[in-house]
Simulated assay, not measured.
Amino acid sequence: MSITTITKTWLCSGLLTVLVSGVNLANAEDLAAQLQQLAQSEQRSSENLSRNQYRNPEQTLQFFGLEPTMSVLEIWPAHGWYTEILAPFLKAEGQLTLAQFRHNDGSLKDDRSIFWARVSQKLEQRIAENPQHFGNPRFIELDPPMLYPAVTEQFDMVLTFRNAHIWNESGHLADTLKTLYGALKPGGVMGMVEHRAAKLSDISSSAVEGYLDESYVIAAAELAGFELVASSEVNANPLDTKNYPKGVYALPPTLAMGLQDKNSYLSIGESDRMTLKFIKPAE
């Protein structure tokens, strides 16, 4: 091969790389704009919109690598704060499945389970009444540690927002993570946002109600088979001192202390949160 041919080949290769990079950048910017538009949609309540500053949905979902063609499982969507963004983003080319709280078939006894079953039912009704926005999400249930019906290697991405501490409190963290691992396709992503405990040293932390140690969460996920590929400080809050009488629930949006020091808690904002991206190894 002549020097001229080699030079032409190198130039063509370089030009192709630049063009592909330009296309990827344009696609990323387009997806970011879509997510931002959905996060600020007038379909959302003013209360939900006010939480964007703490939950940073477009940056968080971009960090996890969300794409519109994916099959995505959102765990315990509750009132649908993230569902309002995910459902319309995925409705044309992808598929959103919501792992709801266990429905009340008459066997639920504790008030907490009955309350969340009611919340799940209201979200399903809201989605059914507004298909133009939400599309046609599918519904299953997560009754930790199991998904009902069971699913295996079905999803490109699993998303869980502020749920791990609940599973940990009930003793189901490890087994629930194993279930989510099984639901992912090889190479799939689990994106997790969770309240982060105060770190005292490299080997210790202080975890009041609702907070979890970041190293502990990572270790539990790795034990289930996941591999941590990245972490982000996009949802960090340095104002959160994590030493409140009712733990994380003293902060908004719960404000469990009522009127007591309410303005102080409002000035702190929502909790300091770890944002972790795991993959299920392709092999």
Rank of each mutant, 00 (worst) to 15 (best):
S46V: 12
L11I: 11
E129S: 14
A256P: 10
G65R: 09
A250V: 04
N24Q: 15
M146V: 11
L266E: 14
S21I: 03
L61F: 15
S204K: 13
S206K: 08
L11C: 06
T97D: 04
H195F: 11
K262F: 07
H172R: 08
L25D: 06
V229C: 09
E169T: 00
K109E: 12
T83F: 07
P245W: 01
Y54W: 15
Q100Y: 02
D143P: 04
L251V: 06
T179D: 02
L16T: 07
P88M: 13
F139A: 09
P88N: 07
D111L: 04
G258A: 12
Q43S: 11
E214I: 10
P77Q: 04
P144C: 05
L259C: 05
E169G: 04
V23K: 14
T152N: 14
S50M: 13
H195Q: 13
T97V: 12
L90H: 04
P245E: 12
L251P: 05
Q132M: 07
R196Q: 14
A128Q: 15
Y211A: 00
K280N: 08
L16R: 09
C12I: 11
K277V: 11
E84L: 08
A250W: 04
P131H: 10
D261Q: 10
S206H: 15
L147Q: 06
P137N: 01
V23T: 09
L16W: 05
L108Y: 10
C12M: 11
M257Y: 07
G182H: 07
G210E: 00
R44N: 05
V20P: 03
K277R: 15
M274G: 03
R51N: 04
I140P: 01
N48R: 07
A282P: 03
L228D: 08
G106C: 04
S170F: 08
N27M: 11
E141T: 13
P145Q: 12
L19G: 01
T4V: 10
S231G: 12
S50L: 07
T152C: 05
F226Q: 06
S215F: 11
H172T: 08
R138T: 12
P145W: 05
R273T: 10
M257T: 10
K8T: 09
F64V: 07
N136M: 09
H172N: 15
I6F: 15
L96N: 00
E214G: 05
A220V: 01
F161Y: 14
K262R: 15
G22A: 10
V23N: 03
K178F: 02
F64E: 03
L16Q: 06
L90F: 05
H165I: 00
L223I: 02
L19Q: 06
A256W: 05
D111R: 13
N104S: 09
A219Q: 14
T5S: 14
N56C: 10
Q40K: 14
L180R: 01
R138F: 03
L239M: 07
L159R: 01
N237I: 12
M190V: 02
A282F: 11
S13F: 06
L49I: 13
L223K: 12
T179P: 02
D105K: 03
N104V: 01
W116C: 01
L25W: 11
Q36N: 15
R138N: 12
Q62D: 15
P281E: 13
M157T: 06
